[in-house]
Design a protein around this nucleic acid. Sequence first.
DNA 1: TCTGGGGTCCTAGGACCC
DNA 2: TCTGGGGTCCTAGGACCC
Length: 423
Amino acid sequence: MKRPIAISDSANFYVSAERIFDPSLKNVPVIVLSNNDGCAVARSDEAKALGIKMGEPLHLIQDKIKAHGVRVFSSNYTLYGDISRRVVEVYEDFTPNVEIYSIDECFLDFSGFKNRDTHARTMRREVLLRIGVPVRIGIAPTKTLAKCANDIAKKNPIFGGVLDIMEDTLVDWFLPMVPVGDIWGIGRKTNAKLQKLGIHTAADLRAMPTKQARAVGSVVLERTVLELQGEPCIAFGDVEPQRKGMAVTRSSGQPMMDFDTVFQAVSAHVTRAAEKLRQHGLVAGTLTVFFHTNRHRPDKPQYAGSRSTRIVPMSSDTFDLVQAARRCAESAWPKGQGAKFGFTKAGVMLDDLLPIEDRPRTLFDVPRTNENAAMLALDQINDRFGKKTMVLASEGVKRTWQHRAEHRSPRYTTRLADLPVVR
DNA sequence: TCTGGGGTCCTAGGACCC
DNA sequence: TCTGGGGTCCTAGGACCC
């Protein structure tokens, strides 16, 4: 039995959000800019009709803006987040299972409804009425097919914003209309490879042998092919996933020429990231620093530096993180030839996040060469420190220990005291 | 000491998404 | 002159272990 999955997304979401509070923005070209007001990240239909492209730099479209009176906004993510939450509330009146996919998209479990089409159209009307945001809805047996349906509904107003392709015959009918590059999961690179192989539409890709798909684009492409065939490979998840990492990155207008300048930018980003961590009540286990030169100037020397380090003990403390960042930055710096480069982007990423209440209090730094000893001492560690103990090793290593423990007679040759305690 | 297979970890980087 | 930011997932290759 095929389970109907719907995806609902808002049209030009940021622009729609701005329009809620300013009716004078209706039917005129509107764009919303990226963080630093560098480029356009949302465009109304009227702005698209003027040929303003996604991600187009502001300075390249000044003429159009003046000539056509395009209304220009800096982005206001707090506002968009609020609107987004309200839209989800409406969805939740129409199905118990909602998976938030992005700020303007949700997957909805549509199983059990007698008339899905009517249900979707009522929901759409309700979102427009209560929030003031127009949405489009695609319904299909898999997420990838639902995305295709959504895409067709978006491009063909005749469907009134809703397209249901649960029937196989409808899939057969519509897939040849979807360019392969528009499929969810097919980006620029994969599209180029597929075009060379004579695969131009979603129907072509659906017919590709899965073995070949794997060779061309790894398991990701193979999954896409199966999803197009109607076999769900990307699970529907209605529980909020724990976030795995966070990042703070910025471009700088002026190229940064020396280590001190780059590190100054990095420490500002780390400080901001540490604040974000604490806001969310999290601590980080891994920190990565990166910086690179201007990709838009291939004529100049290019360099990309990136280095990770563990945060021991896990922390959201600004000082701890800045110290770790300095070690990373120094290690990633092109020694002796830094002056050759002008760095225009720098950032920090925090990974292995854990709620602060789960932070391990006692840490044992177990060198890989000492795995066996650690395994043998594990019981002693747990006896003494309980569950708030963490041995600095990945789950994989622990599983290996477990396995080995079950297949050998353990000899407790290493005492707990022999393991280096970090804290 | 040499040989080899099977396995995991770590790091860097690629591709894609909105 | 001026070209976004924040995410996820996957892979390759070297190091290391038994």
